[in-house]
């Protein structure tokens, strides 16, 4: 015991990831590219939102998409053919994307000419919270079918959101969605976040989502 040696660190466990994320962000800034990280539980409607977004913004905003998935490339296949460059990042069972996976995905995607980069994270409201991917903003979706108290159940992730999208709003009536209760939960847990109610199916509210994106695009370089 007497000759034990104590070594102090005080360093972030994810320092490697944080460093790589910072390098990615610097590269995005140099290229005048706005990067958004899209997060939700599985099935909240990330891919459906992006399908519609790519179709509606085709020819207006040069966009690239990285899609994180545990094993399949189904989501990437849904997003192809809509005018954007799309690359699948298979996480091989990892429950979240890490900055090095984004780095590798970008090598395949190529950033030349892009002004918007969208990353669809793995469906998970826990693990992605701690991993910076170099994004400028985080968008967290939760659908009206998931329960009004979702933000209260997953506060750690919601507290990192810049924008919360209440999705599948077309189903609100059918599931007797209690709108005031849900908005109060978002505001209480994530007062820093903007909130929009959208439907990828009917297009309701999407003009506000597009305006939110456009406001954040960087000046052309």
């Amino acid at each position: 015991m007497e000759d034990r040696l104590i070594v102090d660190f005080a360093q972030a466990v994810l320092a490697e990831n944080d460093r790589m994320a910072a390098a990615l962000r610097a590269e995005f800034d140099r290229r005048g590219l706005f990067c958004v990280n899209v997060l939700s539980s599985p099935g909240a409607g990330k891919t459906a939102l992006l399908e519609r977004t790519l179709a509606d913004l085709a020819g207006q905003i040069p966009t690239g998409v990285l899609v994180g998935d545990l094993a399949t490339d189904h989501d990437a296949a849904r997003l192809r053919g809509k005018g954007a460059r799309v690359v699948q990042v298979t996480t091989d069972g990892y429950c979240h994307l890490e900055a090095n996976m984004v780095r590798a995905g970008l090598d395949a995607l190529g950033l030349d000419g892009l002004r918007l980069l969208i990353v669809e994270n793995v469906g998970n409201l826990v693990c992605p919270a701690s991993h910076d991917l170099g994004e400028h903003a985080r968008v967290v979706l939760f659908s009206v079918t998931e329960g009004e108290d979702k933000p209260l159940k997953y506060p750690t992730l919601f507290k990192t959101a810049d924008l919360v999208l209440v999705s599948k709003i077309d189903l609100a009536e059918a599931v007797e969605f209690r709108r005031e209760e849900a908005l109060a939960a978002v505001y209480g847990v994530a007062p820093q976040a903007e909130v929009l109610e959208v439907s990828a199916k009917t297009g309701s509210g999407l003009e506000h989502w597009y305006a939110w994106l456009r406001e954040r695009l960087q000046p052309r370089v």
Binding site: R4, I6, F9, V13, S130
Partner: peptide
């Protein structure tokens, strides 16, 4: 009663110290 988004601490995930034999 106003909810705060200004988190001063609580996000730490740090390697603090090791003891070597």
């Amino acid at each position: 009663g106003v909810p705060s988004a200004r988190i001063v601490s609580g996000r730490e995930l740090e390697l603090a110290q090791i003891e070597l034999e």
